[in-house]
Every structure is written in structure tokens, then in C-alpha cells.
Amino acid sequence: MSVMKLNVIDLEKSEYTGGKSSLCPGCGHDQISKIIIQAAWENGISPEGIAKMSGIGCSSKTPAYFLGKSHGFNTVHGRMPSVTTGASMANKSLSFIAVSGDGDTASIGIGQFIHAIRRNLDMVYIIENNGVYGLTKGQYSATVEKGSKKKKGTMNEQPPIDLCAMAINLGCSFVARSFSGSKKQLTALIRAAMGHRGMAVIDVISPCVTFANNDESYKSYNYVKENDEVLHMLDYIPHFTPIEEVDIPEGEYDDIQMFDGSTLRLETVGDDHDPSDAVSALSAIHHAEKENKHVTGLLYYDDSMQTADEELGLTETPLSALSEAELRPSEAELASINAAFRGA
């Protein structure tokens, strides 16, 4: 009998799994669910401290398929950020892992996406981006590239909304793009995002095997594999692993410190990319788009921004855990309010 492998808080990986997926076999989203499970387990986060959030769509169904020991909320279409905002205000000690889709985020939910970024809500926001509405049978979404064509129907003629470029322009504190087929890169990014304090947006290209996995679709497996412009190789070094014990890469690299003490190591593969430089991140996105390519990696990172709960100066105890004595002012205080109104 083999000994089950345990993580740093002595839990088996099975403590992080969820129900059986009802998505199409081969769906990119199921790969991402597996990586979320892997990342949470490897990071040694207690499942009960996680809250899973989603909107509506194929991607938003996935919280049922991972982290079964965590509470979750599959909300309404495009409005997951606001529910997460309220929940985060009531209990800021929760670690929010949210999953949304390109329809859920770039169309119906674009307003809430923008405003959650503006507030720097402390959450991981994963967009499972396939360029089509799967659950309603394959209509184009707003992230589909100009010139891309899904399996059935005509070529898309409208320019796409690039959610990463938008997030960077809005001052999002952590912006990355990845591919559901890039297990190593995506695992490192999700692990780093979990260690980040603030809004971490990861736009993950996740092919729709049913409606847009043909070669003319810029978000198909084959197309992304051939047109992936990797910014850097990523290694994630958790806070509980002494960094001295990690092999030093042969080439050039940069280390980024996350809020929880862990490190995201960026190994240079081509041109050096500085994730603290928004203009260079936008430039990389722009050049890739011009050549119909996908740039992946950590695009932008800024650890200096205060989060929504910091800005509001919330008390240390999560608000949902405050006692009646802390929540209801005293009878004497009401008496003095009445007296003040009376002009006494």
C-alpha cells in the first residue's frame, strides 16, 4: 500500500477535490479545475478558509468540481464580483477564488469586473476564456479575435476586448495570461495569485472543444500551442520552502515577493519583461495581438496598492464575527442622540 502524499498542513490532495464535472469531455475548463486543486493543495491552504465564487456559464459551473470542502456561491450572470465584494466585507479573512468566463466577464459583467479592480478587492479572479458562449451553444463572445472563426458560422469581424490590457489600464495589482494546456505556467501563476493580497486577474485561454476547437479559431488547442509567446518561465517557491534550497537557474531571472512571503521566480526566455512596467506589458499585448499571437506569463504586478478593506479601515475581527455588544450601540448612546436632537 502506498503512503498518501500530504501537503504542508497534512492534508491529502483528495481533500481539495470536488464533484464530477458535467462539462464536455476534453474541455479546457476541467484542466483549470485540476490546476486549481493542485495549486491550493501545494500551497497548503486550508480548504475551509477558501470561498469559491462564480457567475453563470460553463466556467462558472466549475466550482462544483473543485474544493468540495469549501463554501461557494454560483451567483448570477456577470455579477459575481459584487457578491464577492459583499462577502469580502463581511469576512475579510476568507480567501476568494473566483471563476468566470469571457461572456460572464467581458460582456454582461464588464462593469462589475472593472469596479472590483478599481477597489483592488482581495481575490483571485480566473477568466476561463474560450471566445464563445458554450452553454447557449456557441455564440461568439466579446473576447474573440478579429479574423478568428468558430466551428460553425461566419468569421468574427469585431475587435476583441483584451481583459488583461483593460485590467492593466485600470491599475489592477496582478495581471497574468495563461493557457489551460500550460500546466506548469498556470499552476505557478495561480499559486502566486493565491499568495497575493489584492486583485489577481488571470486570463486563461481555455479552448471550447465543442464549438471553437477548429484550427481557424484563435483559441483552439492547436492554434494556441503554435502561437503562444511566453514572457518567461515561471517557478513558484512557497513561503514554507527555504529559498536557499531551490536550485538557482542558469540564465537570468527575477524574483517577485508575494504578500504571504512566497516567491514567484521569472526566468528570462527572450526579451526581458519587467512586470512592474505597465507600458511594457501593454506593449507586449499589443504586439502579440497584431501578429494574432497570445502573450502569456505575469504581465503586470504592483504590490503597493491598498485593498478595499484596508481603504475602508475595517476592524481586525471579520465583521461577521463581531458580537452584539460590538454591533449595537448602547442605550446610553441612544439617549444622548435623542438629547442632541432635542437640543439639550
Partner: peptide
Amino acid sequence: LAAAGMVIGAGWAGGR
């Protein structure tokens, strides 16, 4: 819409 979503999020997480 967002205001209502926040109310529901807060209530779900045990807040008022």
C-alpha cells in the same frame, strides 16, 4: 445591481 449583489454577498458570509 452591484449594490444588491454586495448585500447578498455580505448576508451569505454571515454579515448584516
